[in-house]
Computed example of a mutant assay.
Amino acid sequence: MAFIDYYKILDVSKTATEAEIKKAYRKMARKYHPDLNPNDKEAEKKFKEVNEANEVLSNAENRKKYDEYGENWQHAEQYEKARQQQQYQRADQASGFEGGGDYSDFFESVFGGRTYRGSKRTSQYKGEDFNAELHLDLKDVYTTHKRTLTVNGKNIRLTIPSGVENGQQIKISGQGGDGINGGPKGDLYLTFNIANHTHFKRDKNNLYSTVNIDLYKAILGGEVTVDTFDGKVKLKVAPGIQNGTKVKLKGKGFPVYKKEGEFGDLYITYHIAIPTSISEKEKELFEELAKLRTL
């Protein structure tokens, strides 16, 4: 993979703080976002590069590797192993291992192996694990759907199961960096960042909502139409219902992760809206009602 200067992509210095990197990323992401640049291939490419740069520089561990190894940062662990092998080289030679003592052997050991009395053994290393974050809306994860995610310039087609939670992380095997010397590919660790722009509050599989009813319906009872996540339903309101009364709608909550057809519950809390202003006629009637209550 070609080397990309992530600091240059985000237009920050190598000494930039975490907050400065986050601010620069948001600015660049807005600038090149596909929604603001429809059918602009160059902007789409820039958007991918900005996200890639943020994935590396916003992660303290990855940033440290990148600062030390540059374009080879994804092989940092292999370099460290090779450096340790270099330290024990003399002992190996005394035990029958062959090999030069030049510094270049350190790099060769990363992509090759050591020689045992004339025969060469090649070490294999697993590829670098990737970390990515997928931003979704709560409505997106109410149903199972497919999504294409771009990680390090590679498009990965995913099936997003319904019911995933904010902050949940899943591992996608074999979608990380390429292995070295025929070693297995690394894995992709995907973290879900789920924004809630609905009026429902989610707690695992259950949903919570507040419904306003007027004073007269609270006293006399009647019928009210309430929103659920996938439509509207009508509910009976008993006469004399109290403010803060809760009702449970079984199975009208959020899908249970990886359990097809299972849902949590929806809890409705009634809020009685007291009129802030009333007509003279209404005032007279309320006064009459007040007299009746004292009889």
Rank of each mutant, 00 (worst) to 15 (best):
G244F: 05
K252P: 00
I241M: 06
P255S: 06
L266P: 05
K258S: 13
Q242G: 11
E260L: 12
K236W: 00
N243S: 07
F254K: 04
K248L: 07
D265H: 10
K250L: 03
L249Q: 04
K259A: 13
L235R: 14
L249S: 03
K236L: 07
Y257R: 14
Q242I: 10
G244A: 05
K258A: 11
L235G: 04
F263R: 13
F254I: 00
P255D: 01
V247D: 00
E262F: 12
L249F: 02
L266H: 02
I241Q: 07
G244L: 04
K250T: 15
G244Y: 02
E260H: 13
A238K: 15
L249E: 01
K248A: 01
I241N: 02
L266A: 01
Y257E: 00
V237A: 01
T245A: 10
G251S: 11
K246M: 03
P239E: 01
L266D: 01
T245D: 02
Y257I: 05
T245I: 13
E262Y: 11
G261E: 04
D265S: 12
G264S: 06
E260F: 13
K252Y: 14
V247R: 14
E260K: 14
Q242V: 11
L235C: 06
E260W: 00
I241H: 10
K252H: 14
V237G: 02
K236A: 13
L235V: 15
I241G: 02
T245Y: 11
F254H: 12
K234D: 06
V233E: 03
L266Q: 04
K259S: 12
K248N: 10
K258W: 06
K252W: 07
V256L: 08
K250R: 13
K248R: 15
Y257V: 01
G244M: 08
V233S: 05
K259G: 12
E262R: 05
K252M: 08
P255L: 08
K248E: 01
K234S: 14
K246G: 03
G240M: 06
K246F: 07
K236E: 12
A238T: 15
E260V: 14
K252D: 06
F263C: 03
K259M: 14
V233A: 02
K259C: 07
G253W: 09
K250G: 07
G253C: 03
G261W: 10
G251R: 10
L235D: 00
G251Y: 07
T245P: 02
L266N: 00
V233T: 15
G240S: 10
Y257T: 10
L249P: 14
V256W: 06
D265L: 04
Y267L: 05
V237I: 15
N243G: 09
G240I: 04
N243V: 09
E262L: 03
I241W: 09
G240T: 11
G251T: 05
G261L: 07
V233D: 01
P239F: 09
L235I: 15
K250V: 13
K259N: 15
G251Q: 01
E262W: 09
K252I: 00
L249R: 09
V256A: 08
K258Q: 14
T245F: 12
V247K: 12
L266M: 03
V256N: 03
K248G: 04
E262T: 07
V233H: 05
L249G: 06
K258N: 15
Y267E: 00
V233Q: 12
G253T: 08
